[in-house]
Structure formats: C-alpha cells, structure tokens
Amino acid sequence: MQKDFKKKYRINEQIRAKEVRLISPDGKQIGIVPLSEALRYAEDYGLDLVEIAPTAKPPVCKIMDFGEFLYQQAKKAKEAKKKQAQVELKEIKLSPKTDKHDLEVKIKHILRFLEDKNKVKIRIVFKGRELAHPELADRVLQPIFEAVKDKAHIELAPKMEGRQLITILAPITKK
C-alpha cells in the first residue's frame, strides 16, 4: 500500500517547480521560496521536502519525515477501508411448490440477510412441467415481498432466465 503513496508524492529532487509555497515541520507557513532554498531548509532540519499539493500555484511543499508521512497515510487509508461496508449477495433457492412452513423459514433467512445489509437473490427453479405454469412462482414470491416490504426494495424485478425465475432484493439504507 505504501508503494501507491510513494508514487503519489514527489520528494526532494523529484519536485519540478521553480518556486514552492513552503510549510515548516511545525505547520507554520514560511512563504513562497525558490526550490533550492526550500531544499536547503529541509536539509537544515534533517527532514524531507514533500510536495503535498502539486496542483496548487505554486505547489505546496512541507518539510517532514517522509517515512512517517507514508505510515500515517497508510494508516488513514486502512481506517477508511475498515469503515467501508462490504455488501454481499446472498442466495435463496426455492421451487414453485415450496411448502408454507419451509417458506416461513426462508423468509426468516432473507430478513436476517437484509438486517446484515446484504442483498438477497431469490431463485425459483422450475422442474419439468412446472415451467408451463410460471404464475406458481407468484404464490411463493408474494409472501416474501409482503414480509420484506419495509426492510427492502426490489432491485431486480422478477424475470425468467431459462428454467428459473430470479429477483434481487436490496436493503433499504437510512440516511
């Protein structure tokens, strides 16, 4: 991960600007100085000159320990990644003849998946002559939609794909 940050920032002799806006190690602004003078300042402190805002006019450079800076940036990125929610796609397989009790159990599973902020793919598999009666799937889907109406929305409307009917439910996110 630190290699990505190394490519992102230019340090010391890698900086190409003639003049830079210099910031001291304690965060105070020194001002706009020629690059050679900024490098000398950094050398006097025994630290690196790091270009932290290359798109600014003139670029902003700070005198700091680059190794420690990379460590802090990697740490921030790791924290941000931790806070990101990972959404998984869980799958429930049913048949048009799924019994009432079995359906209740599957609905409980679906509700648990939705509470965990996961999407749920419902797959109703048709066997043999069941394919002639796709309306049978309605008997299975209606109780599911009724049970999850306030916890999820239909992301993918029920549609036939070969011998199976597929729909996807996504949890409702509160803002």
Rank of each mutant, 00 (worst) to 15 (best):
I168D: 06
K75H: 09
K151R: 14
K82P: 03
E135K: 05
H109N: 12
P58Y: 01
R40K: 11
V125Q: 14
R10E: 00
I144H: 03
V120F: 08
S95I: 08
F69Y: 13
V50R: 04
A42H: 01
L156G: 04
D48F: 02
R21K: 12
L114T: 07
E146P: 00
D150V: 15
M1N: 07
F113Q: 14
E146R: 09
V105Q: 13
I15D: 00
T173S: 13
I110R: 12
F69K: 05
K127G: 04
V87W: 11
H133E: 13
D48A: 02
E91A: 13
I144M: 03
E19M: 14
I23T: 07
A42F: 02
D26F: 10
G31D: 08
E161G: 06
L47I: 00
L89Y: 14
R10W: 02
F145D: 00
K119A: 11
L89G: 09
N118T: 12
H101W: 07
D138P: 00
Q142R: 10
A77W: 06
K93R: 13
P143T: 02
F145W: 01
E115R: 15
I107Q: 01
I168N: 06
L35W: 03
F113P: 09
K117D: 13
A137Y: 03
V125R: 12
C61E: 07
R16W: 14
C61G: 05
S24E: 13
F126Q: 02
V60L: 09
L103I: 04
D102G: 15
L114E: 06
E104I: 15
E68S: 07
P134G: 03
E146G: 07
L35F: 05
T55F: 03
K106V: 00
N118L: 03
I23W: 10
F113K: 15
I15E: 00
A147F: 02
E146L: 10
S24G: 11
E130G: 04
K18F: 06
R112H: 10
A157V: 11
K175L: 06
L22T: 04
L136E: 15
K100S: 12
G27F: 05
Q73I: 09
Q72T: 14
